[in-house]
Design a protein around this nucleic acid. Structure first.
Lengths: 349, 349
DNA sequence: GGTAGCTTCTGAATCGATACAGCACTGAAT
DNA sequence: ATTCAGTGCTGTATCGATTCAGAAGCTACC
């Protein structure tokens, strides 16, 4: 038994294809009686209703928005901040009867492009992009609306929702500097594309390719420069992946070295928690994170809070309810410095 | 400027449409020189490559699998077990260059059906279904492959990957019974469709409509029946949602009542954690969960471990690499009873 | 009775691509 | 010179629906 099509239903009832189509999509275009007759025949024939693909082709829209993640798809579910962001996107999508297409973005440039080009969606919500500028170009090339969460990745036509990464980073770094810390290390995931885990030479924080990392490192640098600590005196540590374990592994040698830092500022809470793991309890090391995920509170982590779900909700809303004035497509969210027990004065040793 | 189509590129180069199509999808069908010329012209014209929707229509497949959740889409991201399951699905999908379409399933029957009917996917992976049998029927009606995680929801043609819910529940309940507990309460989310939070009359555990809940409650009942505690002596408590807060709110009155239970067995870790919240530390109450999510270990929760990511990976694999023999489409995963500190002997009072 | 105004339904064009049979040409073998 | 097998490319049918202008039928009013 082959799958019946709209035409088969039309034949069975003895009406035209258009009428059957109307029975499904525009009930006001035909009499209730005929409609009932058609739906009944459809049920009898086992016709499951209009084919979504064919319908999308003709209508010109799909009813799904793509969500892109720089790294593997599984990362989307590994970082608690990402999960909450997605939940926010999902809430709004749900209201619009829109699905979420999670697009795995392979590391390989060409395959990444292909993944974007092949995604059947009405728009893209890009959670975070590294130097994947070409992926954004692919989206723009398709003429699809795009909302990003990294300010300087946003082109003129793109929407944006996010925080002032640099200012937020400055606030937490200023707190650490204010406690007297001068020997500090910064910790980021994939600070430079192919760098191994561990300490890294980075001539200038603005050289970091990943916009979010760049913004945060630059903000950290700002605050320390303000108290006389030059960039060159700051250790930058790279991790292989945004995970607790990766962070612990990358930072352990640094903590064990000569002249270890008295404070470590991480680019995400997950990394910061890894630093706490590596340092062990009561080490006296000051550690800060970023995002304020649920685990941060339990661990007493000093961090910067940004509204995760709200960010997701707004991103989806920008896509699904585009503002009349494109100028309203750029949203800057507030952040809060949350001081907990993971930061304190420099221990005298 | 309108978006160019394949035809426009063909015209520009002076070849047929098919040749341009081949340049993209079957490079071996034309000379490298011509292919280069075509791709070059495409770039010049701003042609973004074949339209995914049109391609899907013609090819007959989409390159995406649907993931269905009974409750709201945001739930998918709220339950840690669901998140890990999804991560597993994502890993396998990634290997197959396949996207994940998360389909929000509205509570309303008709809209739920519509959501399924409109999803452009090659198959469905149903994380958990309540009494949503009609949704499964809709999927089958479309002739799409289906993998479920609830054994008795699986039709003959469906694949299945999951655990023996009843036996697993029996094992943890036997542990609690072995500790001497005889006054017990069971806690589940939406045990009956429209029941309010709090204690509930349920004549028989097998009356619970949700297959997973049904399996677990029945297993609990088995173990207590074996030590002489009849079903009628067991309190069943309903929650409004699978969250810590909902569980705490639903169970608090029960714990505060006359003749409170000495043990509470929950149908998920999240609920169990809520019970611990409600009971407070050192209450002497024994509490068990289900799934062994990350937070369970930290809270010392006695629970049943099941392999979350592996479950997701297998589910996706059944969809994307269907076994030659349909009999291999039913996978039963192992579970482990994990005894921690949240269970202990009955306190003498 | 004629025309205006509705509602209900039809037919052809269209969305943007892919599959497949078949044609034209090339070079080698007979 | 003729057949043959292989490349490389073209043309047409097709995927399964939606859209829209317009025809047909029916009521209603002057």
């Amino acid at each position: 038994m082959v799958k019946p099509t709209l035409q088969d239903v039309a034949n069975a009832v003895g009406v035209s294809r258009s009428t059957v189509s109307n029975a499904y999509s525009r009930p006001d275009q035909l009499s209730a009686a005929l409609r009932a007759k058609i739906l009944d025949a459809a049920r009898r024939l086992g016709y499951p209703g209009p084919d979504p693909t064919a319908r999308s082709l003709r209508r010109g829209y799909v009813g799904a928005i793509g969500v892109l993640f720089t790294s593997e798809l599984s990362y989307a579910f590994t970082d608690p901040f990402a999960v909450r962001f997605l939940a926010g996107v999902g809430q709004v999508a749900e209201r619009h009867s829109t699905s979420l297409l999670l697009v795995p973005l392979p590391g390989d440039r060409d395959r990444a492009r292909a993944a974007v080009d092949n995604a059947a969606v009405d728009g893209f919500c890009v959670y975070c992009v590294g130097d994947e500028e070409h992926v954004l170009d692919a989206i723009r090339g398709r003429g699809l609306p795009l909302v990003t969460t990294a300010p300087d990745a946003a082109g003129p036509a793109d929407s944006f929702v996010g925080i002032d990464e640099r200012a937020a980073a400055r606030s937490v770094a200023a707190h650490v500097a204010g406690l007297g810390h001068r020997r500090v290390a910064l910790l980021g995931d994939t600070v430079l594309p192919d760098a191994p885990p561990g300490p890294l030479r980075l001539a200038d924080p603005r050289d970091a390719p990943h916009p979010t990392t760049r913004g945060r490192l630059t903000g950290f640098a700002d605050a320390f420069a303000a108290v006389g600590v030059p960039w060159s005196a700051i250790t930058v540590v790279n991790t292989a992946g945004n995970s607790r374990a990766a962070a612990a592994a990358a930072v352990a040698p640094v903590l064990a070295g000569d002249d270890p830092p008295t404070a470590v500022l991480a680019c995400s809470d997950v990394l910061a928690l890894g630093v706490l793991d590596a340092a062990g309890p009561d080490s006296g090391l000051s550690v800060t994170g970023f995002d304020d995920v649920a685990e941060a509170a339990a661990a007493g982590l000093t961090t910067v809070r940004q509204p995760a779900e709200e960010k997701g909700r707004l991103a989806a809303a920008l896509l699904l309810e585009p503002p009349a004035d494109p100028a309203d497509g750029h949203l800057l969210l507030p952040t809060d410095l949350v001081v907990r027990t993971s930061t304190g004065p420099v221990p005298r040793s």
